[in-house]
Design a protein around this nucleic acid. Structure first.
Length: 258
DNA sequence: ATGTCCCTCGACGAGGGA
């Protein structure tokens, strides 16, 4: 079973790219982030015509997440990260698909740091860690995936020294990611490629993709049940080279059937 | 500080976010 995550940066502006990628790579489960569309403007019909069921949590202008499946029923189990009734940003959706609990997230960017946006990011991380502890305790197969807006280590940044003060790489954020993983999760892409430079995002500025000035910020965390079922994974980085493309590339893993 | 691209409002570009 192939599971993918893709920050589309506008699901409607990106629709031709998204549909082409779905058609060419046929993932079984797809987590999308940054829909940048309210719920009623989600392109449900085009996605259904492409062969996918979908659940989504939209919002006007910003954020927005969705889970798509091909030939598999989706049972939504939540669309809010618990812990803050004041948080109205659509950054989280969770479902059961084919015996796996799938959590799709779009973690706050957090810039500029320090500041209220950075505090929101750290608070979001704290709530996430509490919730993932609950998921672990359920003792079922879980995949947590999406745009974490964190480069976990220096290997995940083209020029680490330039990003030290950025909200995607500050020590507090790297520590939060490290502590989250230490609960018992496996960073699937890093497990498959322990020493390689792997990027999932290239800025639109300054020809970042052409220079391979990238970041690894889209991740898969696997519960202990799934660690041994991980058979492959990678980044569809060529998609980043398409016309009218997102600044992220799709990332995917392959999970064997139990 | 810059660069680019998305979104919205609602004007014929500007501003916010990333």
């Amino acid at each position: 079973m192939k599971i993918a995550t893709y920050n589309v940066n506008g699901v409607n502006g990106r629709l031709p790219v998204l549909l082409r990628w779905l058609q060419e790579t046929t993932p079984d489960i797809v987590c999308l982030q940054e829909l940048k569309a309210p719920g009623e403007k989600f392109p449900e019909e085009a996605i259904r015509d492409a062969g996918y069921n979908a659940i989504w949590h939209g919002q006007k202008s910003w954020n927005g997440v969705a889970i798509l499946t091909r030939n598999l029923p989706i049972e939504e189990v939540g669309r809010v990260l618990p812990g803050d009734p004041e948080d109205v940003q659509s950054r989280y959706i969770e479902a059961n698909v084919n015996g796996i609990r799938i959590a799709c997230l779009y973690l706050p960017n957090g810039n500029p740091a320090p500041g209220p946006k950075f505090d929101y990011k750290l608070g979001w991380f704290k709530r996430l860690a509490a919730h993932t502890q609950t998921l672990l305790a359920m003792d079922v197969p879980v995949v947590i995936t999406g745009d974490f807006n964190v480069m976990p280590t220096e290997l995940d940044v083209y020029k680490p020294e330039r990003w030290l003060d950025d909200a995607l790489f500050r020590p507090e954020v790297r520590a939060a990611f490290r502590e989250l993983v230490a609960q018992g999760w496996t960073d699937a892409i890093r497990k498959l490629y322990p020493d390689e430079k792997i990027y999932t995002f290239w800025d639109y500025f300054r020809n970042a993709y052409g220079r391979d000035a990238g970041l690894r910020i889209d991740h898969f965390l696997l519960s202990p049940h799934l660690e041994g079922r991980l058979t492959a994974g990678g980044v569809d980085r060529y998609v980043r080279g398409w016309e009218k493309t997102s600044d992220h590339a799709p990332v995917w893993i392959e999970i064997s059937e139990s």
